[in-house]
Design a protein around this nucleic acid. Structure first.
Lengths: 226, 226
DNA sequence: TGGAAGTCAATTGTTGACAATCGACCGTCC
DNA sequence: GGACGGTCGATTGTCAACAATTGACTTCCA
């Protein structure tokens, strides 16, 4: 039975692990490009900067390595991954496989709450104009697909998604800096996905998400110079 | 240019991290059922048993949590995952998505060395009789699929595969203890996969792997009692 | 006797110090 | 002059002690 104390969930949520508070901070510095690709991350340096010991920092770096944002080499420390065109190919082929499964399952499980979330994101996409900030485009794009993955009700799928999500963010940031057409594409493309999933048509939905991701990969590739 | 010194790669491989040596040991104790599902793993206990401090043990537990073999709860430590029927559904739907991608790519990349590996495993499968040990069945089964994944030449796919591989091993162990028909099924089923992949027929290969995995999931479900 | 608050032991989270390893630099020898 | 070998500083890997949190037990009171 809901009561006024339900509002306290955040306050009562016990102090999260220190490493858990660090991961988002470093992650964003990497995905936004503030920490350039190939940059060397020294444990002691980060620890003093963040006001903690090396232990939690070390755990955070392991987590970021798991997400593919840094590479860890024994006795040589961590450095921000330098993404190549082959990496883009790997990430997007895996992404296609995962999101097809996500959409397939979401078709029968999409709740009104999920639909409302999708529509809220779509609404913000519709309002974008040519002067949009790259960071906002990345955020909206990923937020949409986050909902799809969550709606699939598949914890392992969600974890696999998180394992490439950060890398996708890096690619998208580069893409939006090089090519600014998201305000024209975002709304109609994602709207088509929303509609077919909401209609519960598995066959159509998987076809649409597939087409969307192939297109997204093509746009990403054409924006790359190497 | 290959020379005689190439044989020394193993010898020159520097001492691996302590946690890396611990992970396989605990992993096998879990997948074989030596450590029962739900068992509590205490860091200090493991550390003294393994003759090291809690640091590496802690890292090892994080890795095992990543593989889905233990669950980590803050201030409550690690315990061996208690797999449910819903978990089986999650693992096998994700597995299908991953292996379809693996086979799709393997079709155009299978080297003679990969083929030889597959045939070696198939040969051992053919020689199985009704008295096979469950552990051997699990090993052969996974070894076959390991080659497929490796042949895909996709490092991120490989990592995703390792993320569910241990859980698959747990399910298979249970299945082989409850139902012993692997010696009749293993060789023909996997042989069909090998042949279509070797032929390079993407469409046929994905269909065959799909059928194989659906069948494997059905057999696994029928062997479960809960 | 039942429920709630307080206490305590067990266990994990964090820290700072020490040991091991790596890559770069530098001098030497052929 | 180029390659080999040794030394050194910087950085990570490991350890043991300390702090914080949890869940169970005990105690208290209505």
């Amino acid at each position: 039975m809901p009561g006024p104390l339900d509002q306290l969930t955040i306050a009562t949520q016990p102090s999260p692990a220190l490493s858990a508070t660090v991961v988002p901070a470093i992650r964003e510095m990497i995905t936004t490009g503030l920490l350039p690709q190939g940059a060397h991350l020294r444990e002691a340096e980060l620890a003093t900067a963040l006001g903690m010991s090396r232990g939690p920092v070390r755990e955070a770096l392991v987590e970021l390595a798991r997400e593919g944002l840094v590479v860890l080499r024994r006795h040589r420390g961590a450095q921000v991954i330098a993404l190549t065109t082959e990496d883009a190919e790997e990430v997007y082929t895996l992404r296609r496989a995962l999101e097809r499964l996500a959409v397939e399952r979401a078709c029968g499980r999409l709740t009104p709450a999920h639909l409302a979330e999708l529509d809220a994101v779509l609404d913000r996409m519709r309002k974008l104009d040519a002067g949009y900030a790259p960071a906002e485009a990345v955020e909206l794009d990923l937020a949409f697909h986050d909902v799809l993955v969550r709606a699939a009700g598949h914890s392992r799928l969600e974890r696999s998604w998180l394992q490439i999500r950060g890398q996708i963010a890096m690619f998208l940031h580069d893409r939006h800096r090089a090519r600014r057409d998201f305000h024209e594409i975002a709304h109609p493309e994602h709207r088509a996905v929303r509609d077919t999933v909401a209609a519960g048509d598995v066959r159509a939905a998987t076809a649409v998400i597939d087409k969307h991701l192939v297109g997204a990969y093509d746009r990403l590739r054409s924006a790359r110079t190497d």
